[in-house]
Design a binder for these strands. Structure first.
Length: 430
DNA sequence: CAATATGATTTACC
DNA sequence: GGTAAATCATATTG
């Protein structure tokens, strides 16, 4: 300020009743204007400007109008604007908003990823309704999921309303300020450039507010996520039905318990869980089964029996239908119906209950007898020849000495069962 | 409440 | 990328 005044005074303007701002421009443009009457006029005008606040409103309006219509106004306006520009009076907060950019981008990305700021997908209420319908029986993780989505859509709605409100307020305020400045520019040197700058400043301010909104929205989403989707924090056991389905598959494919991608999908659908949950389950099951086979013996027998009954029914029905009595394995089913293929697999597995592969595990006596009886019952119900029962060729060796599941279906792995049994038996010491 | 069961995650390997 | 193995964190059980 001081500097500005000093500069103006040094430039040597007309001193006006002790008021500091004088106009160096007058001299500069003297040559073109020529006469001294202009000087007088301008001095008059300036005087009027300086005393304008002392006047009544009507008077002031009239003066303002007069000023605005003055023939010197455009020239003066430009010149004053120029001075203002040069003195740096109006240069303020021109270029910033750079440091916040990366963070803003991060926030935007996250909001987009969470589906808060992106396009409305499926419509919140509709999606929730669909999820609720899909729950059906005993799939309570879907309930939580729909709850999560409901909360998320709530957050999203709030976010959008607030954003809209901010935008509207920003626009209103901007137009208001612009109108004000335009009006002011009739009596004050306010260049369009300056107005533009002011608009930018306003926008920046509102952007920071928006960023705060985005930030708190992100926080809310994170909290929601941690509360609902962090399954590790709030682990839910699968439904009984789901574990049953999974166990059925596992024990009926014990020789090779690695479901294909399609099988996993089907299991996931059946159990109302995700495919990766199915993968997790099988991963855990395999490792835990292998670690302590005896512990799972009872379970294995249980599911083997269960599968046997259904398989027996299926086979019995098939036999009845075809009127055939061929002892070929019923494992020809290639697609979805794994109860049939399971029955085939089961035959491969049942002898293992007291078989050579799992000698390391002390089979409980109950398990033994149960397995025996099951085997017997299956042999009866399926009408298999007695010679098939206990045939060493059907010992699967699902697990080799190193505890690795290898393909028991391939005949090469069961070529010499007795030898294999012995070697496995001796190997189990480690 | 300790022991056990269980679903998920991490790490390392192929 | 899928899996084994170890581990974590919670749920369930006795």
């Amino acid at each position: 300020m001081d500097e500005q005044r000093r500069m103006m005074q040094t430039l040597g303007g007309v001193t006006l009743t002790g008021h500091p701002p004088t106009l160096p421009v007058l001299h500069a443009h003297d040559g073109t204007d020529g006469d001294g009457r202009g000087k007088q006029d301008i001095g008059d005008i300036l005087h009027q400007i300086m005393t304008i606040t002392d006047q009544s409103l009507d008077e002031a309006q009239a003066k303002k109008h007069g000023l605005n219509c003055h023939r010197m106004k455009p020239a003066l306006f430009n010149v004053l604007c120029e001075i203002k520009e040069k003195t740096g009076l109006s240069i303020r907060g021109g270029q910033d908003d750079d440091p916040s950019d990366p963070q803003l981008m991060r926030l935007d990305n996250m909001l987009l990823a969470e589906g808060v700021s992106g396009p409305e997908k499926g419509g919140g209420a509709a999606a929730v309704a669909a999820a609720t319908v899909a729950v059906g029986t005993g799939a309570d993780n879907s309930i939580e999921h729909s709850d999560y989505r409901a909360k998320l859509s709530q957050i999203r709605q709030i976010y959008h309303t607030e954003l809209e409100k901010y935008e509207q307020a920003c626009n209103e305020f901007t137009t208001h300020v612009m109108n004000l400045l335009r009006e002011q520019s009739r009596t004050r040197p306010i260049s369009p450039k300056e107005i533009e700058r002011m608009v930018n400043i306003i926008h920046n301010k509102f952007n920071t507010i928006q960023m705060q909104l985005k930030q708190s929205t992100c926080e809310a989403v994170m909290i929601l996520r941690s509360r609902f989707l962090d399954a590790r924090r709030k682990r839910r056991n699968f439904s009984k039905q789901a574990t049953e389905v999974l166990n059925e598959y596992f024990y009926s494919h014990l020789s090779n318990p690695y479901p294909s991608e399609e099988a996993k999908e089907e299991l996931a659908k059946k159990c109302a869980i995700t495919v990766s949950q199915v993968s997790n389950w099988f991963g855990n099951k395999r490792i835990r089964y292998k670690k302590n086979i005896s512990k799972f013996q009872e379970e294995a027998n249980l599911y083997a029996a269960k599968t046997a009954v259904t398989a027996a029914h299926a086979v019995a029905a098939a036999v009845q239908n075809s009127q055939a009595n061929s002892p070929t394995t019923p494992s020809s089913g290639s697609s979805g119906a794994y109860s049939l293929t399971g029955s085939g697999d089961m035959f491969m597995n049942l002898p293992s209950l007291n078989g050579s592969s799992y000698q390391s595990a002390q089979v409980p006596s109950t398990g033994h007898t149960q397995g025996d009886s099951i085997r017997h019952s299956i042999g009866q119900s399926l009408g298999y020849s007695d010679g098939l029962r206990g045939n060493p060729l059907y010992s699967p060796h699902a697990l080799n000495g190193n505890g690795v599941w290898h393909d028991a279906v391939t005949p090469s792995s069961v070529t010499s069962p007795i030898e294999g049994a012995n070697s496995v038996h001796s190997d189990t010491s480690n």
